[in-house]
Design a protein around this nucleic acid. Structure first.
Length: 153
DNA sequence: GCCAACGTTGGC
DNA sequence: GCCAACGTTGGC
C-alpha cells in the first residue's frame, strides 16, 4: 500500500483532538460511507492521520494522529441502541469497519479551512472537492505542506 | 439554523 | 438501470 497519509474528520463537539489526547487511542467508529470505509481498509499501522475538525467554527486541521490498528468490524453496527446501528449488518457479515488511531500531537497552530485553501501546494486537495468525504487520502506533498504551516509559529 | 452538495434508497 | 425523493454532511 503506497498511501501513508490520511485526513479524518470529526465534529469537535462529539470528539475533538483534545478528547483523543486524553484517550490516547480511540476506535474510529461510526463511519457509514462506503468510500470512507474503503480508505480505512487501506490504512496500515503507523500511517499518519491529520485530525480535522468539521462543523466547527472555524473548521480546520487541529493536529496529528497515527493508525494504531488496521480495519476491524465496527461494533456499533450490531448494536440496536446505537445511532450507528445498521440492521443489514450481522456479526458474521459485517458491513462497516473502523481503525484505531493514536494521538500524536496537537499542532501549535490550528489551520483553518480558509487558510488551507490559500496554500498553493494544496490546490488539488480532495477536501475542497469532496467536501463530504470523512476519511480521505492525502499526498506526501500535501501532508508536508500542512505540517510545515501548522508548525510555522 | 439554513441550505447546497451529494450519497443512498426504492419505485418503476 | 434510471432517476426522483429523501437523508446527511458540513460550510457559512
Amino acid at each position: 500500500m503506497a498511501k501513508r497519509c490520511w485526513l479524518v474528520k470529526s465534529e469537535p463537539e462529539t470528539f475533538s483532538i483534545d478528547d483523543l489526547a486524553k484517550k490516547k487511542v480511540a476506535g474510529w467508529d461510526g463511519v457509514r460511507n462506503y468510500q470512507a470505509r474503503n480508505f480505512m481498509k487501506d490504512m496500515r499501522v503507523g500511517d499518519k492521520v491529520l485530525f480535522y475538525h468539521s462543523n466547527a467554527a472555524p473548521p480546520g486541521v487541529a493536529g496529528l494522529a497515527e493508525v494504531a490498528r488496521t480495519a476491524y468490524p465496527d461494533p456499533t453496527q450490531f448494536d440496536p441502541k446505537s445511532d450507528h446501528h445498521d440492521p443489514k449488518a450481522a456479526p458474521n457479515a459485517p458491513i462497516w469497519f473502523q481503525v484505531d488511531v493514536r494521538f500524536a500531537r496537537k499542532f501549535p497552530r490550528f489551520l483553518s479551512l480558509d487558510e488551507l485553501r490559500g496554500i498553493p501546494e494544496l490546490a488539488d486537495m480532495l477536501l475542497f472537492r469532496r467536501s463530504r468525504l470523512s476519511v480521505q487520502p492525502v499526498t506526501d506533498a500535501q501532508f508536508k505542506a500542512i505540517v510545515a504551516h501548522a508548525e510555522d509559529v
